Amino acid sequence: MISITEWQKIGVGTTGFGVFFILFGILLYFDSVLLAFGNLLFLTGLLFIIGLRKTFSFFFQRHKLKGTSFFLGGVVIVLLRWPLLGMVLETYGFLSLFKGFFPVIFGFLGNASNIPFLSALFQRLQGTRSMV
């Protein structure tokens, strides 16, 4: 069994609140204060979950610098109260940073769900062509 430290539990809660505030800020027509608060909570939670050194090494790898610059630039733009432009930049940076995780996520969801249509859809998104 995986042991989770208290700091990681706090990080999961903080990241969850960050995602909640980001989604709530989007629902309220890109409220810049909620989006900025959500961004700060999300990044703080990420620091608590994986640590300062691993977070720094994840964001500043050579092949991820473009995604990092768009993501962190979007955070700064949101903090400067340009929420729509900032969220567009953040979305592009987020997709660029985490594009390697999407096949793994779709593969897990395809194997975890027993619903035939969703399983086939997630397997196609994963990149495999077998329907087994």
Rank of each mutant, 00 (worst) to 15 (best):
F94C: 00
F59V: 00
G16S: 12
G16E: 12
K99P: 05
G74Q: 03
V19G: 00
V75L: 12
Y92M: 09
Y29F: 15
S57M: 06
M131L: 13
S130V: 10
F37I: 15
A36G: 09
F37E: 03
S57C: 07
L118V: 14
I105K: 04
F48Y: 13
L35H: 10
T14Q: 06
K64H: 06
F17M: 15
L46W: 15
P116F: 01
F37M: 13
F101Q: 10
G25K: 07
V19C: 12
T14G: 07
L41H: 04
K9P: 00
L109E: 03
G11L: 05
L41I: 08
F102N: 09
L52T: 09
L28I: 08
F98N: 13
G74T: 06
G67E: 01
W7Y: 04
S130G: 06
F48D: 04
F98H: 03
L27Q: 15
F24I: 07
F117D: 03
F30I: 05
F59C: 00
T5A: 01
G110R: 00
I49F: 00
N111G: 14
F48R: 01
M87V: 11
F60I: 12
F60C: 01
F24T: 13
V88P: 01
L28Q: 12
F56H: 04
N39G: 10
I26S: 08
G100M: 04
V78M: 06
P103V: 09
Y92R: 00
F37P: 02
A120M: 09
F58I: 04
L34C: 10
P103A: 08
P116E: 10
G18H: 05
V33K: 15
L34S: 14
V75A: 10
V104S: 10
G18P: 02
Q8P: 14
L109G: 11
G38F: 05
R124Y: 08
G45I: 00
S3V: 10
T15K: 03
F17G: 14
T68S: 13
R81W: 15
F58V: 01
F101N: 14
G16V: 06
G107I: 06
S119G: 05
F70A: 12
M1I: 15
L65A: 02
G11R: 12
F71A: 02
F102A: 13
R129S: 12
G100P: 13
R81M: 14
L23Y: 14
F24M: 12
F59Q: 02
G13D: 03
I4H: 02
A120E: 12
I115C: 09
Y92P: 05
Q126Y: 06
R124P: 00
I2P: 08
L23M: 12
V75R: 02
G86W: 09
L52D: 06
V78A: 03
I10L: 15
R81S: 11
G93H: 07
I77Q: 08
Q8G: 02
